[in-house]
């Protein structure tokens, strides 16, 4: 696949996922949750993965972190991080890889803080376990870390319930970047937050990213948010990538009917009120073919050539 060459800038890719296939294996039948997905993320690049619930985006994140549990199994493909094969790592290598090389912020991360430990104890724990600092040194660094996300270091002594949702989410992001990972995976980092707080957290992430220079894999279903933050993005449907290009190109000129439907699902805040259609109930795409280059750097799964693909015509004709 040639997609890996379209990374942002001329940097070495930090993460390279090739033909990743993940199956959920049941007793009687198994489901392919991720089907031959390939992409790469360059140094300092923000790569977005968009799609609806169930399309496999979180499964990809969990495969990169090697967090998949039974019955999910990586059935094929490769994940390499900085040249190392992630799928072949030993438990000891994995322990170092997680958090030090790649950190992840989960969807309801603000609820993943331990309620009976103070914020400070939880951050100190990262430094003493993963970096081997002394307690005193760890505490100093924990204070710096909170300042980085603009939380008063006095909050180190607070318990999670004493912080608001936005502050907890910021604390979790601070913890994720504590060991200066080269890749940060954000899985729907702001879904449970109000818009005002969401925008401030996104600005925070952008700022941290500029300061620390890490790459980001950003997962969300909110296309507007994704286009604002990402350099490049991919749209997933049913375990397949249907379109990938620079985020601005996808926004300005979505080519796959599913991408168009997703874009059409968000009413604009300006301009006249025009009827939108979204994706009608029951329209499904099947046997999505491999991507082909439709324009320079803009890869789309072809539609129509393969008769097994359901005709996307009802999209246009959908009644209001």
């Amino acid at each position: 696949m040639t997609i890996s060459q379209v990374s942002f800038g001329s940097h070495e890719p930090v993460l390279e996922v090739k033909d990743l296939t993940v199956k959920y294996i049941g007793d009687t039948r198994s489901t392919t949750a991720v089907d031959r997905v390939s992409f790469s993320i360059g140094t300092g690049e923000v790569f977005g993965l968009a799609g609806e619930s169930g399309c496999g985006k979180s499964t990809i994140a969990n495969s990169i972190m090697r967090l998949l549990k039974d019955p999910a199994k990586i059935a094929g493909g490769s994940v390499s991080f900085g040249g190392k094969d992630v799928l072949a790592m030993s438990p000891e290598e994995l322990r170092r890889f997680r958090w030090q090389d790649v950190a992840m912020v989960f969807q309801s991360a603000m609820n993943s803080l331990n309620p009976v430990l103070t914020i400070g104890e939880q951050i100190v724990d990262i430094f003493t376990t993963h970096a081997g600092y002394s307690r005193k040194e760890s505490l100093r660094r924990a204070g710096e870390l909170l300042e980085l996300v603009r939380i008063d270091p006095a909050r180190l002594k607070s318990y999670p319930h004493q912080l608001s949702g936005g502050m907890r989410q910021r604390a979790v992001i601070a913890m994720a970047v504590a060991l200066k990972p080269s890749l940060l995976i954000l899985d729907e980092p702001t879904t449970a937050l109000d818009v005002v707080v969401q925008q401030e957290i996104m600005a925070q992430i952008k700022e941290l990213q500029r300061e620390l220079g890490f790459s980001v894999l950003f997962i969300t279903h909110d296309m507007s948010l994704m286009v604002e933050l990402s350099h490049r993005m991919a749209v997933m449907y049913g375990g397949r990538i249907v379109e990938t290009a620079k985020a601005q190109d996808v926004y300005a000129n979505p080519r796959h009917p599913y991408t168009q439907a997703l874009m059409g699902a968000f009413p604009p805040l300006t301009g006249p009120r025009v009827p939108l259609t979204g994706l009608p109930e029951g329209v499904k795409f099947r046997n999505i073919p491999d991507l082909t280059e439709a324009a320079p750097g803009h890869y789309v799964a072809p539609i129509g050539a393969d008769p097994s693909v359901i005709d996307p015509a009802p999209l246009e004709g959908a009644a209001r």
């Binding site: 609806e52 599913y258 059409g264 699902a265 939108l276 979204g278 994706l279």
Partner: peptide
């Protein structure tokens, strides 16, 4: 609801 079907429900309410 999934994002792609939200608009459909809004359209139904308007109808």
């Amino acid at each position: 609801l999934d994002v792609s079907v939200r608009i459909g429900v809004l359209n139904l309410m308007r109808k």
